[in-house]
């Protein structure tokens, strides 16, 4: 195994990490800020890809197509939010319903095809795996803009109300916050980010696929959780909101570097999803086990035995 191969793959891994980092920012918004496990994303990321590819092929510019993809994601999130708040469907189930509905909708968007090619030689695309430096630049700029926007928005009255809703719904209602509206708003915004990331991903890989979102939520969670663990270890007490957001993207990049290593080790690609699940389980377990190691019945028992 040539270590040079690993390094030459690195820029591509980082590019993918940046693109999924946009998606992970959306997941951060629902999972961490709103405290809502939103599974819509598996569908809305493919919606973003489908909308972008169809529009670019029919002559739209790539940025305009991405804007529409964002809007399509917003709509998907809106529907999940309405299922949850107006019809009383539990959060996870509302997301799953939208996810399954979007599968059919995405097929319809792509005219019944399970995938559609988008050649970078034929169309003027923003990013492509053939032009990695340009991809890094473009996605890097998009991420900085999105993080700045999020930093600003969650400092406003409305953004603060969303954060309060995620932390303490009872208190939020008592302070006159319409928590249903806040949930819908946050879900719409989050899925907008996710669809935007799907649109960029489709351009990068040169096609959109009906299954491109399968397991996306797990990758998004992996990024959020890896970012949090690494961020707390590196920055600790000086952590603030913008650095937290930055570490979400770092988490996504680290995840794709890890995937790059796995591929370099010639592990069968069939096992990638298994590997992803293991990574997420490990990073979720680490803080819990750490706490338990310091504070367990086994230890208390040993201390107690010494006395008696």
């Amino acid at each position: 195994m040539d270590i040079g191969v690993l390094f030459s793959a690195l820029p591509g891994n980082i590019a993918q990490g940046l693109i999924w980092g946009i998606m992970a920012l959306g997941v951060f918004l629902t999972y961490k800020i709103l405290n809502f496990a939103d599974l819509t994303v598996d569908g809305s990321i493919a919606t973003g890809g489908a909308v972008t590819v169809v529009l670019i092929i029919s002559g739209w510019s790539a940025p305009a197509a991405l804007a529409v993809a964002f809007a399509a994601g917003v709509l998907a999130g809106l529907l999940t939010g309405l299922l949850h708040t107006m019809l009383g469907i539990p959060d996870i189930l509302a997301g799953i319903l939208l996810q399954i509905a979007l599968y059919s909708i995405n097929l319809n968007i792509m005219g019944g095809a399970a995938n559609m090619a988008l050649s970078v030689t034929q169309y003027n695309l923003l990013v492509s795996l053939r032009y990695i430096p340009k991809t890094l630049l473009v996605t890097g700029v998009i991420i900085l803009v999105l993080i700045s926007l999020m930093y600003w928005y969650f400092g406003t009255e409305q953004g603060s109300a969303i954060r309060a809703t995620g932390t303490n719904p009872a208190m939020s209602r008592a302070q006159g916050i319409n928590i249903d509206s806040m949930k819908v708003l946050a879900l719409a915004l989050s899925n907008g980010f996710v669809a935007l990331s799907g649109g960029i991903l489709a351009q990068y890989q040169g096609f959109s696929d009906i299954n491109m979102g399968r397991g996306a939520i797990v990758i998004g969670l992996a990024a959020v959780i890896i970012g949090e663990v690494i961020g707390n270890a590196l920055v600790g007490k000086r952590m603030n909101f913008s650095i937290r957001l930055l570490f979400v993207v770092v988490g996504a990049i680290l995840y794709y570097i890890a995937i790059g290593v796995v591929l370099w080790l010639r592990m069968p690609t069939n096992n990638l999803k298994l590997f992803t699940a293991i990574i997420v389980a490990v990073f979720l377990a680490v803080p819990y086990l750490k706490e338990k190691a310091n504070n367990s019945f086994a230890k208390a028992g040993r201390r107690g035995n010494k006395i008696s």
């Binding site: 928005y153 400092g155 406003t156 009255e157 953004g159 603060s160 109300a161 916050i177």
Partner: peptide, 16 residues
């Protein structure tokens, strides 16, 4: 700051 805005419209002005 959240309490100070009880009953007011929460827009895009700074939260505090």
């Amino acid at each position: 700051a959240l309490a100070a805005r009880r009953g007011k419209r929460r827009g895009l002005r700074w939260g505090i």
